[in-house]
Amino acid sequence: AGLEKQLAIELKVKQGAENMIQTYSNGSTKDRKLLLTAQQMLQDSKTKIDIIRMQLRRALQ
């Protein structure tokens, strides 16, 4: 149950990062740093999601 909860949280983080990227990508240059931060968050989240999914698969075997 813990892994499913972690996965749900990470999927929400990923969605939030995608929303932030959309918001900041057509903003001013001061938003550039926020855009880069959001892109890093998205990448980190995708990595965590992959790891959690692997752990889930392993647990189900």
Rank of each mutant, 00 (worst) to 15 (best):
N26S: 11
L42P: 01
V13R: 15
E4V: 04
A38T: 01
L36N: 13
E18R: 08
M41V: 08
I9M: 11
E4M: 03
M41A: 08
S28W: 03
K14D: 02
M54P: 06
A59W: 05
I49W: 04
L3Y: 06
A8N: 07
A38H: 00
G16Q: 15
L36D: 13
Q39M: 05
T37Q: 10
Q39E: 02
A8I: 07
K33A: 05
K30H: 03
M20W: 01
A59R: 09
A59H: 10
G16S: 14
L34F: 12
E18K: 10
Q40T: 04
K33Y: 01
T29G: 11
I21H: 04
M20L: 06
G27H: 06
R32S: 08
A59S: 11
I9R: 14
Y24C: 08
S45Y: 01
V13K: 15
L35V: 06
Q43K: 14
Y24P: 13
L60S: 12
N26M: 05
G2H: 14
L35T: 01
E10S: 06
I9V: 12
D50L: 01
Y24I: 09
L36E: 13
Q40R: 14
I49S: 01
E18F: 03
S28T: 08
Y24W: 01
E18I: 05
Q39V: 03
L60T: 12
L34T: 02
S28C: 08
L42H: 06
D50E: 10
N19L: 10
K30N: 13
K5L: 03
I52H: 09
A17P: 05
Y24L: 13
Q22A: 10
A59Q: 12
M54H: 09
D44N: 13
E4C: 02
Q6N: 09
E4N: 09
I21D: 14
Q61T: 07
N19K: 13
A1W: 05
E10D: 00
K12A: 04
S25R: 13
K48D: 00
E10R: 06
V13W: 01
Q39C: 00
S45Q: 01
I52F: 08
N19F: 05
T37N: 01
E10L: 07
E4R: 05
I9N: 09
Y24R: 13
L35P: 00
S45C: 15
K30S: 03
T47Q: 07
M41W: 13
K46V: 06
D44H: 15
L11M: 13
K48H: 05
R32L: 03
D44I: 08
T47R: 15
T47F: 00
R32C: 09
E4G: 09
E18T: 04
A8V: 09
M54A: 14
L42W: 13
L56T: 02
K5A: 06
Q40W: 00
M20N: 03
A38P: 00
E10A: 07
L35R: 07
M54T: 11
E18G: 05
N26W: 01
G16A: 14
Q22T: 09
L7K: 13
N19P: 06
T37C: 11
S25F: 02
A38Q: 00
Q39G: 01
L7W: 00
I21R: 13
I52N: 02
I51N: 15
L35W: 08
D50N: 12
Q55T: 08
R32H: 10
A38G: 03
G16K: 15
M20P: 07
D44K: 15
L11V: 11
L11E: 11
S28I: 04
E10Q: 12
L11Q: 10
L56F: 09
N26C: 07
E18D: 08
Q55R: 14
K33D: 01
Q55N: 07
Q61M: 12
L34P: 03
I21Q: 13
S45L: 15
N26I: 00
A1P: 01
L35I: 05
G2A: 04
K48M: 04
R57T: 04
G2M: 12
G2L: 07
G16T: 14
M54D: 07
R53Q: 09
T29I: 06
L11D: 08
M20F: 03
A1E: 15
R53S: 04
K48C: 02
E4W: 14
T37I: 12
N19R: 13
A38R: 00
